[in-house]
Design a protein around this nucleic acid. Structure first.
Lengths: 187, 187
DNA sequence: CGCCGAGTTGAACTGAATCAAGAAACGTGG
DNA sequence: CCACGTTTCTTGATTCAGTTCAACTCGGCG
């Protein structure tokens, strides 16, 4: 649990009571490789903090799985879109390695927001953090070529290359596996 | 000012004191057509609520202006990315019609957050609302064709077609003006 | 040893960009 | 109210990046 709080402290240090309240509301759980926690089309009720492991979110497009995002240790791995909006998730979330997570239910989080202003403050900062990351992605998707996005990925998140198969990375970048293979082998 | 509060009330009704505090911190201003309020590469310090008018955010890509988003009456029109993160804005924001806005400075908003938990609550809800909208756009950009995106635009925000030239709409959809012209003339 | 998944490579095809020219709409001043 | 220039939109021809399909290579593993 300390690992989770360390992450939260990066955004805003919580009081002891705040942490206690969060701890009381959450559960630690193991997720074997292959576990599916969120299904496209269903509302996502849980926030998952990834203590260990790797996760992939993908969308089913005409029978093909297109990767929407990846997540690794020390981030949230949930369909934030569905969790926030209470609308059906746009993607399926699947664990790619044996993993460990901290789980928090939507209703419990709302209660925490009501009773602890400092947690609502933290929630706002987290929302903003994830907003900023999403906008950076949106921007790179609109204004950068697939090659530039690949080079950026190599530079900023090289661990993805080690831990995910090329096909998943290609669809994440918005290109076919063949094109990505060509990009990397002859820059 | 009432118009602004009506918008905020959609997210969460504020107390009289809360509204008073916001009113005290904000300014109403006219923006003639052509006014540029945020410049790409500079940090955006203000939140603009659009009472009336229309706005365009665009990014300079190799000398070409590529539209990133549009905004009309009764929404915020700012580089939320820059405002939140304090990083340089990715886009320039330009008024497309004579407009009226409510302006709120970043520092004043932070003060309001500190002194009024209800405003922080509202801020979280607004952040989440804009996150959800951004994710819907990201999703449609990744998984829908330009034609589908155009049809969706016709269905959900037809006023854009009336109030913005085709070239801007095309680059917003991620295609050339010629292609959009062909799409609409022979579906 | 042979199978299987992952990655590479080649060739043909295609959707969209670009380039270029023309038509239509609009606003301004004479 | 018309003539003019500017901006906006359409249409056609060409080109090109990236997809698709298919075959092949490589490394691990029963």
């Amino acid at each position: 649990m300390q690992q989770f709080f360390d992450y939260l402290d990066l955004f805003c240090p919580l009081s002891f009571e705040g942490k206690q309240a969060i701890e009381k509301a959450s559960v630690i759980q193991s997720m074997p490789k292959g576990t599916i926690v969120v299904e496209e089309g269903k509302v996502c009720h849980y926030l998952y903090f990834l203590k260990k492991g790797a996760v992939r979110g993908f969308h089913n497009l005409d029978g093909k799985e297109v990767t929407y995002w990846f997540a690794f240790e020390n981030t949230f791995a949930t369909s934030l879109y569905s969790f926030i909006s209470r609308k059906p998730a746009l993607e399926t979330i699947c664990f790619m390695e044996d993993s460990e997570v901290v789980i928090l239910h939507y209703d419990d989080l709302q209660k925490l927001y009501k009773t602890h202003p400092e947690i609502e403050h933290l929630g706002r900062l987290l929302d903003e953090h994830y907003y900023v990351m999403l906008e950076e992605r949106m921007f790179s998707y609109m204004f950068r070529t697939a090659k530039e996005r690949y080079e950026n990925l190599v530079k900023t998140t090289p661990h993805i290359l080690q831990r995910m198969p090329l096909g998943h990375i290609a669809s994440y970048l918005g290109i076919s596996q063949e094109t990505l293979s060509r990009i990397r082998n002859k820059s």
